[in-house]
């Protein structure tokens, strides 16, 4: 195991960005947990006389059209945004990895039908699909999660399928059969653990994408509704004021969004380096 640790150490040393991204992601998670008890103002309390103030010492990120403190809103929104993305990714990962692995291993009819299903899913522009799903299921937060999970699903299925497929004829898989493992045992005990590291990369990259998707949906007015603090909806509300120069209403939540996505993406790239230095691109 020490060799693995050495390798991780080497990657972090030569690629400090990964470390910074890891710290960033960690601090985001802490903010999501502790945020509401840290912020200086109530994120939903309006204070009309103080409306549309530029950033100042009292209001670090300025105030919005109702005089609410943008900083408090941005911080408090972390929890909702991360929670949506994390639950969506978890859902699609769990379902996609298992289905994809079995498809990749057995091939045949199951593979064919799942492949068809994935094709149908992929025949939509995925963001449009998510919109339609939220519209169909109802304009609620949990439906944003389901919609995001469903549009992520094809990627996990395909990814797990491809990763398992290249391994299914390797010696150690056949050896596992000789050692008395059933097909299901081979998939669950041998193939899945081998595919998981590569999927960890996918999960991290996917988290960023899921955050973007969820924020995009609420930017359009789907899912989360005002006055709930959420980055996408805050940008949407601020959009009205951009042509009159109130940049902070867009820039602050937008920057928070970008920071979160950036952290998870960089973390994903770093994980990829840790797992396989040759895949470094």
């Amino acid at each position: 195991m020490s060799a693995t640790l050495r390798h991780v150490g080497w990657v972090l040393r030569t690629n400090p960005v990964t470390m910074i991204a890891g710290l960033g992601a960690l601090s985001l998670i802490l903010l999501a947990i502790l945020g509401p008890s840290l912020v200086p103002y109530d994120p939903v309390a309006s204070n009309v006389p103080m409306a549309l103030q530029p950033p100042s010492r009292q209001h670090w990120f300025g105030t919005d059209q109702l005089g609410r403190d943008v900083f408090s809103r941005v911080v408090v929104a972390t929890r909702l945004d991360l929670a949506i993305a994390a639950s969506a990714v978890t859902l699609s990962f769990l379902i996609g990895a298992v289905i994809g692995s079995f498809c990749g291993y057995t091939g045949g009819k199951l593979d064919l039908w799942v492949g068809r299903f994935v094709d149908v899913l992929m025949a939509f522009p995925l963001f449009v699909l998510a919109m339609a799903l939220v519209a169909a299921l109802g304009n609620r937060v949990e439906n944003i999660i389901y919609a995001t999970a469903i549009i992520n699903l094809p990627f996990y299925i395909r990814f797990a399928r491809a990763e398992v497929n290249v391994r299914r004829n390797l010696g150690w898989v056949e050896a596992a059969r000789c050692a008395g493992n059933s097909h299901a045992g081979v998939v669950l005990r041998f193939l899945l653990p081998n595919v998981l590291p590569a999927m960890a990369v996918q999960i991290s990259l996917n988290l960023g994408w899921a955050i973007l998707n969820a924020a995009g949906l609420s930017f359009l007015g789907l899912g989360v509704r005002a006055p709930t603090p959420e980055w996408g909806i805050m940008v949407a509300e601020g959009a009205r004021f951009i042509t009159t120069g109130r940049w902070w209403l867009v820039v602050c939540p937008g920057a928070a969004l970008m920071f979160a996505v950036l952290c998870f993406n960089l973390l994903g790239d770093g994980l990829r380096d840790i797992l396989d230095p040759r895949m470094r691109t």
Binding site: L170, G171, W172, E174, A175, A176, C178, F190, P193, N194
Partner: peptide
């Protein structure tokens, strides 16, 4: 039982 050709892939890497 079966013994496989070894090209680094006859053993489960994990």
């Amino acid at each position: 039982q079966l013994v496989f050709q070894d090209a680094g892939e006859s053993l489960n890497p994990r």
